[in-house]
Every structure is written in structure tokens, then in C-alpha cells.
Design a protein around this nucleic acid. Structure first.
Lengths: 201, 201
DNA sequence: ATGTTTCCACCTAGGTGAAAACTT
DNA sequence: AAGTTTTCACCTAGGTGGAAACAT
């Protein structure tokens, strides 16, 4: 994947902490999913440009299956391998950024952080969290939806951004210890044991 | 002041935890103001009805001086007495509810909580907090502002609600010990000492 | 004297990975 | 054997009143 922002329909979007995302991606990013819901780390955080400052937009994040595979981590080779078909489909949910709807100027003023988004493996989730299968590979996407004022339309003009380095595999417990270490070292909420974090020797 | 919701322009609004507010009011509610900013306790929290579900509204809270007096607390009589004139005017700030703008149906769905609002005595505050003088009496108000779609107007239709039991006097340290006790007993963040809260005998 | 600021221990609220228990 | 759930100690983040220091 190239450097610099993605550009779609004259709108440009850049993934924040791209180097961090790439580091994770190199090892095969894992995201823990739980019954109650768990945040992503890193979170999707983007800067946007090229919006019409006057127009109103919503920002939406969704997560697509990358392929039809189920995966398993092979400790010997430290690699994820495809094992059989993906599980059946799930309720399709999206995360609408809580500041939606908002003027283009507001979206462009500062980073747009999707860190409140939560992933779950609970198919009966009632909290509107995004439901995923464990041990599957996913691709998050960000949609910029223009909301015309005072007009009733059935389809809003939408521009979709896909950041390949944000792909991840869902787990209920980390498989690759390199990923665990990265999470602990980079996520301020995850310094919860003696031999890491700021007290590390 | 009567019971039941206030009604203005066909819109009705009710102050949540009204009994609690009245208990405070009976003793003379004090609100601490600090340089960095401090929340109100109780917070202004209202339920709204009678909005047009389709229309867009903003909700705004402002705080007016009740009179032209400066106050002092007299321990002997446990009363606030007027002592001289109010201090000079301050930058007028309002608190726009962070969910603004929003459809009437959204505002009516659940309680509208202004608990993120912060008061300060720092006249040079740059964080947009509401600036007040210490030892003055204030009246919070809630404004419902209708925002017509796609029209540029200089004045929006506004309905203003005033809850008398929400009046308070600003302090930098509590004067009336009855108020201190009420704050400690009712505010979950204020159990910070041995002889109260859940460890009380 | 009286009022303000600073610092702090003590809370609430909630995001982590580890480990043990559980399931299949 | 492999994956999931539960619980928990350890964090971050930030809202309290108290006490001491400070200001006027």
C-alpha cells in the first residue's frame, strides 16, 4: 500500500498512527472480541480533507469479512493459516460516529476518532455493537456520507475509504505473543502487570 | 414554585431530581467554582415534551445573575446576606448541549443532561467554560432553540425555561455545613473521607 | 479576617491482559 | 486439544471535599 492519504471523489483521508498500524499488520493484527464488547486497539482515527465546509456529513465505520475463510494460528510457523469456510453471516451493523451529522468544517477541524466503537462475538448483542466471528479476517472501512439539507433522498452520496493496514483477525485470546507485547507497550490501558510498562526493567 | 412541568410555547420541560434540587435550595445551594473549572452538583437534567419530532433543535444552558448583590454567609444565623454591589460584568458564555443540533424526537427520547458543563472563576478561561463571580447569586436557564432547515435567519425561535429551585450562590469553599453534607451524601464522586459514604458507621 | 489557590487522598467509571474455569 | 467465558488485579481518566498555603 502506498503512502499519503487516500483520495476518493475529491475527498482525502489519512489513517492516523499509520506506522503503528503497519507494525501490527506485519505480525498479523489481532483484535480481541468478547461477549460484553471490547474496543479496537489501535482505534481507527482519521484526518479528512476536501469536504465542503458548509455541507453536512455523517461518518460511518463498517467492517467487512476479507474472505470466506476461518483461520487458525500455527505456533510453529508463527503464521495464520486458512482452515475451512467462514461461519455463517451475522447481523450487519455499522458504527455511526457520535458527532454525526456535522458540517464539513467541523469534521476537518480535528482528527476523527472511532475509539468508542466496540466489537463483540455475541450474536444477540442489544447494545448496537459490531458483531464479528472469532478467528476470521476483517477489513474496516470508513464512509463519508453527504447529507443534503431539506431534501428527502433514498441514497446519499457516499465516499468509501479502505485502509489495508487496518485489517485484523478476531480472537478471544491473543495467539501471537508479538501482538500481545505490542498491545501492552502501546495501549496505556494495558500496563496491568509487573514485567512491562513503565516499571519494566 | 408550583409542581409539574413548565410549559412555554407548547413545549413542556421538567427538572429532573426536583426534590433534590429543592432540598438544596432550602439551605441555599452553593456551587464551588475553581480556576480549572468544576461541575455543578446537582447537574441540570431535564425531560422535554411537545417538540416537533421532525424539526431540529439546539439546547442551551446559560446562567444569569439574580440580582446586583454580593453575598456573605453569616455563620451565626446560617444565612446569606447581601453585602454591597455585584462585581463588574463578565464575558457572557453559554453551554451548548453537546448533542445539539438534534431532532425533536431525539431530545424527547431521554433525559437531557447538562452534567458536563463546568463553572469557573477564571476570567481568562480559554476552555469555553462558564465564568462566574464568587459569592454571587445565579439563576440557570435552559433554552430550546429551533433551527429551521436550509434557511438563513438571524433569529431562531427560542423558548426559555427557568427553574427557580436551581438558583445557587457561587463559592470557592463551602460555607454552610448542611450543604457540604448534602453534597457528600448525594454526589457519588464525593465520598472521599472516612466518616461518610459506604464506610460510615 | 476573609476569601482563594494548590495539592492530595479518596472516590467513580471503565479499558487492559492474565489466569483459571468452563465448554465442546 | 482448542477455543471461550469469567473474574480480577492493574491501569487510565477524571470528579470530590479537606487541609494547608497563599493572597489581600
Amino acid at each position: 500500500s502506498q503512502n499519503g492519504p487516500e483520495v476518493v471523489d475529491g475527498i482525502s483521508m489519512e489513517l492516523d498512527k499509520r506506522d503503528l498500524w503497519r507494525t501490527f499488520y506485519r505480525y498479523g493484527t489481532e483484535m480481541i472480541i468478547t461477549k460484553v464488547g471490547r474496543r479496537m486497539f489501535p482505534s481507527m482515527k482519521v484526518s479528512v480533507n476536501g469536504l465542503d465546509p458548509q455541507k453536512t456529513y455523517a461518518m460511518i465505520l463498517d467492517i467487512l469479512p476479507v474472505d470466506d475463510s476461518r483461520y487458525r494460528y500455527v505456533y510453529n510457523s508463527s503464521k495464520w493459516v486458512s482452515v475451512g469456510n467462514a461461519d455463517t453471516n451475522l447481523p450487519e451493523r455499522v458504527y455511526v460516529h457520535p458527532e454525526s451529522p456535522q458540517k464539513g468544517s467541523d469534521w476537518m477541524r480535528s482528527l476523527v476518532n472511532f475509539d468508542k466503537l466496540k466489537l463483540t462475538n455475541n450474536e444477540n448483542d442489544t447494545k448496537g455493537q459490531i458483531i464479528l466471528h472469532s478467528m476470521h479476517k476483517y477489513q474496516p472501512r470508513v464512509h463519508v456520507v453527504e447529507i443534503p439539507e431539506g431534501v428527502d433522498v433514498c441514497r446519499y452520496p457516499t465516499s468509501t475509504f479502505t485502509f489495508r493496514e487496518a485489517q485484523f483477525i478476531t480472537v478471544t485470546a491473543y495467539q501471537n505473543q508479538a501482538i500481545t507485547k505490542l498491545k501492552i507497550n502501546r495501549n496505556p490501558f494495558a500496563k496491568g502487570f509487573r514485567n512491562n510498562g513503565r516499571n519494566a526493567k
